[in-house]
Amino acid sequence: MSHDVEGRRIGWLAARTASLRIPIGGEFLLRRTFGALIAVWGAATIVFVMLFVSGDPAVFLAPETASPAQIAELSHAYGFDQPIPVQYVNFLWNVTTGNFPKSLYTDRPAFEEVLRRVPNTLAVSLSATIIGTLLGLAAGYLAVNGKIPYLRVLPLRVMMVLQSTPSFFLALILILFFSLTLRWLPTGGTGSWLHVVLPIATLSAYVAPSVARLFSASIREVQFEEHIQTARAMGLSERRIRIRHVAINALSSVVALVGLQVGGILGGAVIVENVFAWPGVGELMVRSVNNRDFPVVLAAVMLICLGYVVASLIADIMVILIDPRAQERR
């Protein structure tokens, strides 16, 4: 009984894992990593181009009260009088090593300033993405498989309302209700775990609607695919089919969507941090733009781009884990 067809003994673990396989090909990883590098390089180039199209970059990097002579001196110090290709290479090098100028405001290295805030932004963004996705999945699933037919439209209608509400407006409504009227939660800042509830709630409300819509549409599509008929022909229970065959297959497009949405989520994080005075990268960036503190702005932009690229890569990998076909070229 414990011999395989060729008479060899086989253990339980080996039998259990005999059908499993991580479907990620080396080719795919190579291609995506290459793509990620290009993306980061592209972002840096865009920033570079803009800096130079607008005139003398030294103007941005000098304090507002600087005199033309000081600006010229700064220009020379940064090497802005060098030929453009040289500057480009220098720029790329500086970006890669995190060597940004000092903040005009705090006079500390810009990169450090930004880096310090990353954990805060990460906390809110990541939690909101996860919570929002879970909510969206639940809403989407219920919209298709909910037990009571006329209640099925409810989750999607709620989602639609949420999607039409700008994040900042939703934030203020939540503050109005939960902070000012009910006094359950603070209006902003940090301190306790209570301070993080509203920011995460607001950002989750940004993520959830498109997830819900796509998931329900995806489920409907997968339901009609032929392999579901095969599953029925095998005699599996409807419940098993709905979850293991339909829902999980529909999941791959949702994960892909979340990957694409990371950009929007980061943008939403900027707004949310601003409304709730949450000390993250976004809040710093907006403040710096208003204060014309360019080194910090640049550092923040590059860091956000890096985060975006990494998040996209992770999302892509997750898509493949769910649907191995996605590796093939479009």
Binding site: A18, S19, E226, H227, Q229, T230, A231, H245, I322
Partner: peptide
């Protein structure tokens, strides 16, 4: 039951072994 188009009849997310297990 055997269906007409095998490529569409098999769940692309599962390996052959997992399908048989189902």
């Amino acid at each position: 039951f055997v269906f007409q188009s095998p490529m569409r009849a098999l769940n692309p997310r599962l390996t052959v072994g997992e399908l048989v297990h189902e």
